[in-house]
């Protein structure tokens, strides 16, 4: 029989009553912060490198060099972010990750059945980010890409972009942008711009184009005007992604509003940062 103590050691100041994830020493926290920074740096560095060294002439075939750099750099970044966040996430957040993934897939398909020309593949990630915060959002985004790749390997290289979406959604929630319904799509729009720009090199260098016919048509139009492949795909992403993410954030907001308060208030992040409007624990509305 193990001789664990019945109570957990007291944590320092600054952790709310629900912060059971705060375990760990100052050294551990610094290491995790370093991992997070390294992950973000790997993603940003890869993006800058790819844009600067993009092949001037792609007439000789797809660039293996850029593909390898894009794959390696972005995946490394995603893995570092997961490694930084995963071990310290509380179980209550962890069990949401499979749910987020399932919602990404299923809600994506449901919305796809309405015939609207968007991807809607991040609803679950955004939902979890709103409930559990930026770190959980980033880990959820990256991890769900990895698991999703078991059915569709082409989403694997986009793990870094998915992490960015989750992270930014969490930041928006912390900043109170989900308290008013009309602010959520604005946050989604901005997120879409950044996520689209980061994902464009993957589409251009790893896949040589986009996965859908609709998006392919938009890229074709820019190519017809003489743009380079990366420029054309980036412009296409800047058209589709902000719109897509604005809708996704709005849907996520509607879903969060539809949840009962007992459910949303389970999440320390929602309580501490007052993510949802008018719902303060001390003075609940009638």
């Amino acid at each position: 029989m193990s001789q664990q103590s019945l109570i957990l050691p007291a944590t320092g100041t600054g952790t709310g009553p629900g912060a059971d994830c705060a375990a760990g020493t100052a050294k551990g926290r610094r290491n995790r912060r370093l991992l997070e920074l390294a992950g973000a740096a790997a993603i940003a560095g890869t993006y800058v490198f790819l844009v600067l060294t993009q092949p001037a002439d792609i007439a000789n075939g797809p660039a293996s060099f850029s593909a390898l750099v894009a794959l390696g750099g972005f995946l490394l970044g995603a893995v570092l972010l997961i490694a930084a966040a995963l071990p310290v996430l509380p179980t209550s957040t962890l069990v949401l990750m499979p749910v987020a993934l399932v919602l990404n897939v299923v809600l994506g398909q449901l919305m796809g059945s309405t015939g609207l020309p968007f991807y809607f593949d991040a609803i679950g990630t955004v939902l979890i980010a709103v409930l559990a915060g930026p770190a959980a959002g980033a880990a959820t985004g990256a991890l769900s890409s990895i698991v999703w790749s078991f059915f569709n390997p082409t989403v694997l290289p986009f793990a870094a972009g998915a992490a960015l979406i989750g992270f930014l959604a969490g930041l928006a929630a912390r900043g109170g942008l989900f308290r008013r319904f009309y602010l959520a799509p604005v946050a989604g729009f901005v997120t879409g711009i950044l996520a689209g720009a980061v994902s464009a090199p993957i589409a251009a260098f790893v896949f040589g184009g986009t996965a859908g016919l609709g998006t392919g048509a938009v890229v074709s139009a820019f190519r017809a005007m003489g743009d380079t492949l990366l420029a054309a795909i980036t412009k296409q992403a800047l058209i589709s992604d902000p719109m897509d993410k604005a809708i996704v954030f709005a849907i996520a907001a509607l879903l969060v509003y539809a949840l009962p308060r007992r459910t949303t208030f389970q999440f320390p992040f929602v309580r501490r940062h007052r993510v949802l409007a008018g719902k303060v624990p001390a003075t609940p509305e009638a």
Binding site: M1, S2, Q4, S5, L6, I7, L8, A10, G16, P17, D20
Partner: peptide
């Protein structure tokens, strides 16, 4: 274990408690 509904209340270790 005494609980007063405050932040410095003891925190139950679910893993040990449930054994």
């Amino acid at each position: 274990l005494e609980f007063r509904g405050l932040e410095d209340d003891p925190r139950i270790n679910p893993s040990a408690w449930s054994t």
